[in-house]
Amino acid sequence: MNKTPSKQSWWLRLVEWVDGDREPKDQTLFVMEQRPPRHVQRSDAEFATQDKHRLHRFRRWYPVCAVLICLALMGILMAAVLTMPTFGEADNPINNEVAEHYLEYGLEETGSANVVTAMILSYRGFDTLGESCVLFLAVAAVMMLLLRDEKNTDEHDQQKQEREDGILAAHPDLILRRAAWVLVPFVFLFALYVLLNGEVSPGGGFSGGTILGAGLILYSAAYGPKQMRVLMDARRYAAVRTFGLVLYVLLYGIYIFLGANQMPNYLTGMTLLIDLAVGLVVACTVYGFYVLFSRGEF
């Protein structure tokens, strides 16, 4: 593969390495089946006994070490709990002016009656932006590893997949389909309720988005990938996923801009839209994980 590695630029070498065309030098610490040097080559029986001996030793010490580590962790955690202040005391360190400010001015500053939503999406919205980015990148990483394309699929896998699809298409599960036909609209309705009602009641972007993703998973499991492609194919999926994150970034940018310039906040429906954006990102993450883990393509 690599003809003249020294003459190529480091960028080309990196690209080759990322594509998997070029093997890095074997500098790994733990090589499982490394060939022993020629002068100390042993017979198979010797190998077997040595392996058995090592396995035996491992089996003997592994539980002991595991229990010791667990006990140490438990001790540390118990000690930490013992030194914690009593639950619900008035003069605890968490009851300072920050919490008071949130509770007092949360409604008028953010326009959401649920203090948790106000905190997650407005006061600490930057953290939530980071979380949304983490979810987005997680799906991207899983896609890199598990997405099926011509390069990483061989004939055998393709045939197996086609056989499974054929079985599923020949014997559609009528009971599951009927149940899903009744349930999926209500699941979506409940998801939207939780999503859009996050301002005034428990819920919000993360839980609503998860329920939305679960509804998509139910639909996909009941009706198969062919029907699912009508609702959401790869392009639409990518569009929705990106749209959620971009919407969040834009809205929160406006939010930060308004707040930093001491401008009055007339945008009362802001939390609702941010909730919707987070919900879209989370739903796409959950559904994408399911699809990529189960089939590897949309």
């Binding site: 428990p202 839980s207 679960a214 883990f293």
Partner: peptide, 22 residues
């Protein structure tokens, strides 16, 4: 209740599905 909804949906639902698929 916020955490309860999320835990029920993510912990009991989605995570188990992903574990089963794995």
């Amino acid at each position: 209740p916020d955490l309860a909804i999320t835990e029920a949906a993510v912990g009991a639902g989605i995570t188990s599905i992903l574990f089963f698929l794995t």
